[in-house]
Computed example of a mutant assay.
Amino acid sequence: MVELLSKVEVKQISRNENYRADMLARMAATVDSKLSKSVPLEVRTSPSIGEEVEVDELPGVLWAYQTTHKTATGETPFALVFGHEAVVPAEIGIGTHWTEYFNEEQNGEQICLSLDLLEEKREGASQKAAQCQQRVMRYYNKNVRMRQFRAGDWVLRKVNQNTRDPNHSALGPKWEGPYRVIRAVGPGAYKLAYPDGRDVKRSWNAEHLKKYFQ
């Protein structure tokens, strides 16, 4: 054993000659310094996954999630972390243009270039996510009908499971009241009072109220 170890030689290779080491250094430099370096541990007394779920399938599910393009960003989570797309295991068995014409030297150069452009890619994904949120907000607001009430207005309140009379069946009244609006306590939220002047315990959203005409 001593004879074998005496023949071991450690040779230092510069980062310019070793693109793999340079690639790892670039990846480490892109990590946000604000991220926590500690790994939280949680001791569970019972399994967090039901018995009907196959634990062996979890790595495949996570891999599929990480390599699937998201509508909001237009990118895969894997690409936003490492700067380039991952080779799906199925591509190795079937054979694609990506795997058939693989060139290690050119691949290393492209990976380094992707790491240089990683921040730009993340900013583009962030802008796309903001645009997607705006589209969803416009679609939602287009179908929303704002209901506004003033102090002194009389309204009916929608019956829900918490306020439904247990003696009423499913064919019972859908609205109850009337109630008098005391004041607005927030955007679309109102404080109500019973006809005898007693305050209703909590405020109610305008979505559950409608104007009462005497």
Rank of each mutant, 00 (worst) to 15 (best):
Y140K: 10
S169A: 11
G188I: 09
I182R: 02
D165F: 07
R150T: 08
A206S: 15
W204I: 08
D165E: 07
V185S: 00
H168L: 01
A130I: 06
A151N: 15
P178Q: 03
P178C: 05
K201Y: 05
H208P: 00
P173D: 01
Y179N: 03
W204V: 11
V159E: 01
G197E: 02
N143K: 15
P195S: 10
P178H: 03
V159M: 02
M146H: 13
G197L: 08
R157G: 02
V185I: 09
Q134P: 00
G172L: 09
Y194M: 09
P187V: 00
Y179D: 04
R138S: 03
N205G: 15
V155S: 15
E176D: 12
P187Q: 12
Q133H: 09
A193T: 12
Q134Y: 07
Y194P: 05
Y139L: 08
F213N: 10
A130P: 00
A189S: 15
V144G: 00
Q133A: 14
A193M: 14
F149I: 07
N205K: 12
H208G: 04
A130Y: 02
P195C: 11
D165G: 04
Q148S: 13
G152Y: 02
D199L: 13
C132A: 15
R157W: 04
V185Q: 00
I182F: 00
N162V: 03
F149M: 11
R202Y: 11
R150M: 07
A151L: 04
W204K: 05
H208Q: 07
H168A: 03
R150W: 04
F213A: 04
N160P: 00
Q148W: 03
R183Y: 11
G188L: 10
M137Q: 13
K211A: 09
W175Q: 03
D153G: 06
Y194A: 06
Y212M: 08
K191S: 14
K158A: 10
P178R: 08
A193Y: 06
D196Q: 09
V185L: 00
V136D: 14
Y140G: 03
R145A: 04
Q134E: 11
P187F: 09
K128C: 11
A129W: 01
A184W: 07
N162W: 05
V181T: 06
F149P: 04
A170R: 09
A129G: 02
Q133C: 05
R145S: 08
E207F: 10
K191I: 11
S169K: 05
A193F: 12
R150G: 14
N162E: 06
L192E: 10
D196S: 11
P187I: 00
P173V: 04
L171I: 08
Y140T: 13
P166G: 02
A184D: 10
Q161M: 08
R135M: 06
M137K: 14
D165A: 05
D199N: 14
N162I: 06
D153S: 10
K210G: 08
N167S: 06
K211R: 14
V155N: 14
K210A: 07
Y194I: 00
E207L: 09
R145E: 14
G177D: 07
R202E: 10
K158Y: 07
K158Q: 10
A206M: 05
Y140R: 12
Y212T: 03
Q131E: 14
R135W: 08
R138I: 10
S169N: 11
Q131M: 12
R164S: 07
E176P: 01
K158L: 12
A129K: 09
N141Y: 05
V185K: 00
Y139P: 00
N162Y: 04
W175Y: 04
P166V: 01
R164N: 03
Q134M: 05
K128W: 01
